[in-house]
């Protein structure tokens, strides 16, 4: 009886949290539409949004600001969900697609493509997620194999260390590959790596959206499985879970989501870490609650970071990834310092 009550309370709490977060997200979205290089008053933004406004305002809002805002929202959602899944699968609260080296694998593939195809404008938006996917899976497979030992399965510490090793190696390679580019290309890649949400047109929204529409429902559907994992391998098998198969499916979903996101946003870390952690604080440890809540938190975080990055300096943009890392890394270190051995 108590159990049922508790469960219902949690569900109500999650619903309320989701509504509040959605309102916050909406607020940030409105603010974000008002932020930018050319000034537009909130009333002008609203008028333009509903069909009024000058052609110039129309252009600024619909062609420059909105696509970027939508991408920040989607990428925030995607990375937070990917992080939650990775934390559940590895049973390591410090897992994140950036830390585990998956982002750097995706980044390597994208950078290789950019270097070998200077005329990227025409073809790339739809292609980039696929390329990133190949790189991300390459990285994930290497890390998985390195962390796997026969009779012992996957060890979470080896998983994390292999990810860090791979990311360090890939970074060394990337610097080497980019250093001889001409300054324009180099700047493009440098801002991309810093996580600048560079693909800010509707083409990129269309390239990203199908991935999320397919993958996020799978993640939500499998969320209960993550709760079973958290009980430990023996209990999970006892409850009839086909551990390795389920784990693999979830890993594939997480890697694919983060690859698609990284392809359009560039290397943004720590969203996958912050989202789920804050979500757990708000609604407790059950993944069916954690995943939707962390998705909205991720969206709010990235949207805010991008907005601040766009407006904090007069003549330059700070990439959203840099802003997220400046907040996220200290939080990560704080979690690390608190964690038990």
């Amino acid at each position: 009886m108590n159990q049922v009550m508790f469960h219902r309370k949690r569900t109500i709490r999650t619903t309320i949290t989701l509504i509040v977060l959605a309102l916050i997200a909406f607020g940030v979205l409105l603010l974000s539409m008002n932020t930018g290089f050319s000034k537009m008053s909130p009333m002008e933004v609203l008028r333009t949004l509903f069909g009024g406004g000058t052609p110039k305002q129309h252009l600024i809002l619909f062609e420059f600001r909105l696509p970027r805002i939508v991408i920040a929202l989607l990428v925030g959602i995607g990375l937070a969900i990917a992080g939650a899944i990775l934390q559940g699968v590895s049973r390591n609260g410090l897992a994140d697609p950036g830390i585990l080296g998956i982002n750097s694998g995706a980044g390597l593939a994208v950078v290789l493509f950019v270097i070998t195809n200077p005329q990227r404008e025409s073809t790339s938006p739809m292609l980039l997620p696929f390329l990133a996917l190949i790189g991300a899976f390459g990285a994930a497979i290497i890390i998985y194999l390195m962390a796997y030992k026969r009779h012992k399965g996957i060890s979470s510490s080896r998983l994390v260390l292999s990810g860090i090793a791979l990311a360090a190696g890939v970074n060394a390679l990337m610097i080497v590959m980019t250093i001889r580019l001409d300054p324009n290309e180099f700047n493009f890649i440098a801002t991309w790596q810093a996580g600048s949400i560079w693909g800010s047109s509707w083409k990129f929204v269309i390239a990203l959206l199908p991935w999320l529409i397919v993958l996020i429902p799978i993640a939500l559907w499998k969320a209960r499985q993550l709760d079973v994992f958290s009980l430990g391998d023996e209990t999970a098998t006892g409850l009839g879970s086909q551990l390795n198969m389920q784990r693999l499916v979830l890993l594939v979903v997480a890697v694919a989501i983060s690859a698609a996101c990284v392809a359009v946003s560039g290397g943004i870390g720590f969203i996958g870490l912050l989202g789920p952690h804050i979500a757990r604080r708000l609604v407790g440890p059950r993944y069916e609650h954690v995943i939707p809540v962390s998705a909205l938190i991720g969206a709010v975080l990235l949207l805010t970071a991008d907005m601040i990055g766009r407006s904090i300096l007069q003549n330059a943009e700070i990439p959203a990834g840099v802003m997220v890392a400046i907040i996220g890394a200290p939080y990560f270190l704080y979690l690390l310092a608190r964690s038990k051995a």
């Binding site: 410090l94 950036g98 830390i99 994390v160 260390l161 860090i164 990311a167 360090a168 440098a190 801002t191 790596q193 810093a194 870390g269 720590f270 330059a316 943009e317 700070i318 990439p319 990834g321 840099v322 890392a325 400046i326 996220g328 890394a329 200290p330 990560f332 270190l333 690390l336």
Partner: peptide, 20 residues
Amino acid sequence: ALAGSAVAALLVALSEGIAL
């Protein structure tokens, strides 16, 4: 290693911001 990679991420992000 985790502390190392997070501190590196922070310092690299700050350097990137400055450099850009």
